[in-house]
């Protein structure tokens, strides 16, 4: 599938950057003219993935979070969020709704939200090496009245 536009960035895994990451992806996705709901779905999924990097991957240190996003032919946005953190031992278990390793007030819904709000998600992880979350969403074409 042909890439129409692409951007990448990285930032330190500080919680103050969660809003920054959402704002960046929202500005990039705006190129696809998404509905407000589609835009909110993308922002929410990215917020969950970035929060996972901060809370889980880099629980013991402040590492870097890498985001790469592409707009593909056919109105598809592909977002890859990667860390070099602790990794996930059992990805299938981590993706179960309500599963959380940190307790406190984390709801354990991060992956459930990503799965529900995006059209596709793939998670690859190696313990001690890091995790990559790749998500896809198809933006519905809008019917324009005056061209």
């Amino acid at each position: 599938m042909q890439t129409i536009n692409k951007f990448s960035m990285n930032f330190l895994a500080r919680s103050s950057n969660e809003g920054f990451a959402r704002a960046c992806i929202a500005a990039f996705a705006a190129g696809l003219d998404p509905t407000l709901e589609e835009l909110n779905d993308i922002k929410t999924a990215v917020s969950e993935a970035v929060t996972n990097c901060i809370v889980h991957a880099y629980a013991e240190k402040i590492g870097k979070v890498y985001i790469m996003a592409e707009i593909l032919e056919g109105g598809i946005i592909k977002i890859k969020i990667r860390d070099n953190g602790c990794g996930i031992e059992n990805v299938d278990m981590a993706m179960q709704p309500l599963f959380t390793t940190v307790g406190g007030e984390r709801a354990g819904l991060g992956f459930a939200v990503m799965q529900s709000f995006m059209d596709g998600i793939r998670v690859t992880s190696k313990v001690g090496r890091g995790t990559t979350v790749t998500m896809l969403k198809k933006i519905s074409p809008r019917i324009t009245v005056n061209g």
């Binding site: 929060t51 007030e105 984390r106 709801a107 939200v113």
Partner: peptide
């Protein structure tokens, strides 16, 4: 805007 951190806030 709210992500699942808001769910944790309500549940708590």
């Amino acid at each position: 805007f709210m992500d699942s951190s808001g769910i944790g806030l309500v549940m708590g």
